[in-house]
Design a protein around this nucleic acid. Structure first.
Ligand SMILES: [Mn+2]
Ligand SMILES: [Mn+2]
Ligand SMILES: [Zn+2]
Ligand SMILES: [Zn+2]
Lengths: 147, 147
DNA sequence: TTGATAATGATAATCATTATCAATGAGGTA
DNA sequence: TACCTCATTGATAATGATTATCATTATCAA
């Protein structure tokens, strides 16, 4: 797993240590697709070692994100969600406000326009978050039936 | 103030009542520009009536948002922020990760592309959140000096 | 192998938000 | 206007996610 190597490198260059819990948490996170809460990650990690604590998951997921291996997905409320970036190119989200369904998409046109905004204000780009909110076809049909 | 009329209308059509605290909170919110937390709003409202409780601010700001007079600004963490929509057309945010400075902008090109995404997936648009993160010119200079 | 130091996990603390509830207020009706 | 019903209020407790604390344990460079 290449992610493990990257993570070890990140830790080394930041004066931190690779540990058994960190290895387990990283592996559980990378091997699970989707938008995960720390609770989700803890559940997976506990399958390997039930002794792992949730505080360690919070600490480790932040390290993983800082290492550039994960990003925080937009949370409406409740718990934060993370998704890994392994073989997962950058994308944005289209979310159904009715059922919570998430569609991932990438719009090169939008990405290009965003760069224009950055340069227009002389900002050094550091990323962006974009979430489109709408009603999916199924929820539209459900709503029509409802009234 | 036109917003007061709209809010009264919203309340009436939803079987809810206009009250003195609600009037004070709405006025304080509309008359303050920027991205406000409920604590900010409470502070302003207390200047008019110190007896107002923070629970009422939480409840009222949600009503105001539901009435279409406010929207939630993207919060990284900590308290939620709201901004009113009175004489304030839709816009997105460019945020400096160094100093927290916020620039409001509108990109018609991006808005148009977002509509394309919605129709591509047959979603009924309900809004969007977009935040560009970067380093402002001042913070870039500061950083260069730092090392 | 050792020793300095970082990491762990249990637990308490924090902080924003929501729920509860007795008292009050709004506003339609007679 | 007086009344009556039901929404609203503010104080306070509860909740839920995240962070801080701290004694114990593990890592890893020398
Ligand atoms: Mn995603
Ligand atoms: Mn704004
Ligand atoms: Zn849906
Ligand atoms: Zn800045």
């Amino acid at each position: 797993m290449n992610e493990l190597v990257k993570f070890e490198q990140y830790l080394r260059t930041h004066g931190q240590k690779m540990t058994r819990p960190r290895r387990i948490i990283l592996k559980a996170f990378i091997e699970t697709e989707g938008h995960l809460t720390t609770e989700d990650i803890l559940r997976e990690a506990k399958k390997v070692d039930p002794g792992i604590g949730q505080a360690t998951v919070f600490r480790t997921i932040r390290l993983i994100a800082d290492a550039g291996l994960a990003r925080e997905a937009l949370q409406d409320d409740g718990a934060r969600k993370f998704e890994h970036l392994a073989d997962h190119p950058h994308h944005d989200h289209l979310l159904c406000v009715g059922c919570g369904k998430i569609i991932e998409f990438l719009s090169p046109a939008i990405e290009k326009e965003q760069q224009k905004i950055f340069s227009q204000y002389a900002f050094l780009p550091r990323g962006h978050m974009m979430e489109l909110l709408g009603l999916c076809p199924e929820c539209q049909a459900k709503q029509k039936k409802g009234e």
